[in-house]
Write a protein that binds this DNA or RNA. Sequence first.
DNA 1: TCCATCGGACCCTCAAGGCA
DNA 2: GCCTTGAGGGTCCGATGGAC
Length: 248
Amino acid sequence: MTVHPVNGYSSMPMHMYPFPPGLVATQPLRSKRRQVKNACTNCQKACKKCDDARPCLRCVKYGIAEECVDSQRKERKKGVKRGPYKKRDGKGTNADIGDVPEQPSIPVTTEVPTQSASPPLQATYMAPIGYSMFPGQFPGSPTPKPGEPSPAYYPQFYAITPVPHPGQNGHPGQDPEQGYPSMAQYIPAAFLPYAPQSYGYMYPHRPDGQMQMMNPHYAPYPQMYGKPPSAGGSSDSGHLNGRNHGDD
DNA sequence: TCCATCGGACCCTCAAGGCA
DNA sequence: GCCTTGAGGGTCCGATGGAC
């Protein structure tokens, strides 16, 4: 796997990005893997990482955004009887559980903070701006359950992309009718695995979760998506069909 | 080099069981 | 009613091999 020259963390999932050296030197470099609630059918077939947005990043990358739909989840079985529980000794304290190293006494996290303790900085809190690139992309885009607040979700890095002039051709977010880009200038760093080094300007988050502004020069427009896959290139013979992934 | 495939580790959800 | 437990069902990491 290649290491991205900008962030140096390869295509490591965002939630696994460690903090910069020195900030949290005592923390483990990786947190637990985090899953989306419901992967799209394409990612599910390919056993690849999906995200909550629709279309998801992977489908966008492969030009199959219109096929990016939630997969159906099976109903959980009910009425399954269970045997008596084996009691853990030292009830309720992980200190007594030898093979459970998690749950430090002081909660620490390497994950993206959902809400910062400090109020957002007006000038830097621009993350939602970037989410106009696709309808429903990122924060709160998945339909929350009734009574459930939309999850706050902000990537840790943002990269600036230039704004093509009206009529300028050649990128996927462009409105073919008007020639104006529908893609925003601020791209979440989740796209960076798909974007080459032309992302010269990234906005690192501060430790408190806010974004730090840098000199917003534009880099050359990146080849965000590379070459599109051949139309309908994703075969339906994903291994889900051949595996015991709930085909009943 | 890129991409598809896929084994299996890892994670989340939630019903059953246990207890106050 | 609330908490704990653990299995079901899911996601996706990472290895592998084929195509270009």
